[in-house]
Design a protein around this nucleic acid. Structure first.
Lengths: 107, 107
DNA sequence: CTCTATATTTAAGTTTCTTATATATAACAT
DNA sequence: ATGTTATATATAAGAAACTTAAATATAGAG
């Protein structure tokens, strides 16, 4: 596991990227997907994820549909058209930032 | 300028890396160096930097020496031996994290 | 019948960051 | 003379974000 301060600040970017690639996803699914893609190196906590999802929904970036599967409620999140644009911006920004950070970290 | 949440969490890593490469530095110098290396894309704020420097000093990662240059006080920060080890860990961790993030962001 | 996995939510407390302010010197321009 | 910009550090109030923990609920495995 990476230190928490490094993971910090990438949550929104990760969420938007995953939703862009996978269409609709529910919260628990997002945490599992991130675990899988990172070989268990990044573990999103619910206390951080859900407030972020709710905030993005409030901002009009995400919409939700609740469905009951196996008697358990699932709340699916999808990007709105606004969210799709926001995801593009965030993804581009991430790569630019990463390039800049690599410059600093290789100086 | 990148969004604040992306810069978030990289402050400690940047400070430790710069001090490792440049020996002693003072706060203002760190902000200028980061501006320079990032082509003005990353601007560390004093309100974030100084509390972090003070915290690292308190943790025994940094030591300080004050000098007066041109009638202005400068407080030079350097890595302790503990800080040197901490810098190594943080730098390695950054590159590992970056690799993992790139996997997620390229999925 | 207990533990683990699935699934979401909230709330208290802590940390961290933003923004603003205070203090001080010096160089340069008006 | 006077104001602006650059240099240099520090602190404090408030906001934002995260950590940790607890609450609620179903289902399968041992």
């Amino acid at each position: 596991m990476y230190s928490k301060d490094l993971i910090r600040g990438t949550l929104r970017t990760i969420v938007l990227k995953l939703l862009k690639e996978n269409g609709r996803m529910y919260g628990y699914e997002i945490t599992q997907k991130v675990k899988e893609l990172s070989s268990d190196q990044i573990s999103l906590t619910f206390g951080a994820l859900y407030p972020t999802l709710h905030k993005l929904e409030k901002e009009g970036v995400l919409t939700t549909i609740s469905e009951v599967v196996d008697h358990r409620t699932r709340k699916y999140y999808s990007l709105t058209s606004k969210g799709d644009a926001a995801a593009k911006v965030k993804i581009d920004e991430y790569f630019a930032f990463s390039k800049t950070m690599n410059l600093i970290m290789s100086s």
